[in-house]
């Protein structure tokens, strides 16, 4: 499955490029990270407990279901963070964010 969100209007905006899990992804200036990712992919992350994929729920910064990472380990709430050209994002916790003992 490709994208989840369907663009209905406002398609004339400038394009920008994000890198999600290292893969380039075209989106539009004015997109949130959630829109940018979910117009190309079906999910944002996996649940820590069930393991199933999640794609956000409330879109208003309340449910906390859409937290993703930057490649250097910072946390971003995808529904309320604007997409910026060149941003490098991860849908799984990068090792830089929390150490492993292995």
């Amino acid at each position: 499955m490709s994208g989840r969100f369907v663009r209905l209007a406002e398609a004339g905006r400038a394009t920008i490029t994000l890198f999600v899990d290292g893969v380039p992804m075209r989106s539009l200036a004015g997109d949130t990270l959630m829109t940018a990712i979910l117009t190309a992919r079906a999910s944002l992350r996996r649940s820590e407990f069930g393991g199933e994929r999640r794609a956000g729920f409330c879109l208003m910064g309340a449910c906390q279901d859409c937290w993703i990472w930057t490649e250097d380990g910072n946390r971003l709430r995808a529904c309320s963070t604007p997409a910026v050209d060149g941003a490098r994002l991860c849908t799984q916790q990068p090792a830089t964010a929390w150490p492993t003992l292995s």
Partner: peptide, 24 residues
Amino acid sequence: HWAGCYSLGGAQIALKAQACAIGR
């Protein structure tokens, strides 16, 4: 809890603030 299930408010914000539908 499946991906693709949103709150009504969330569905509205996708449209209002991002000109998107939450699905096909």
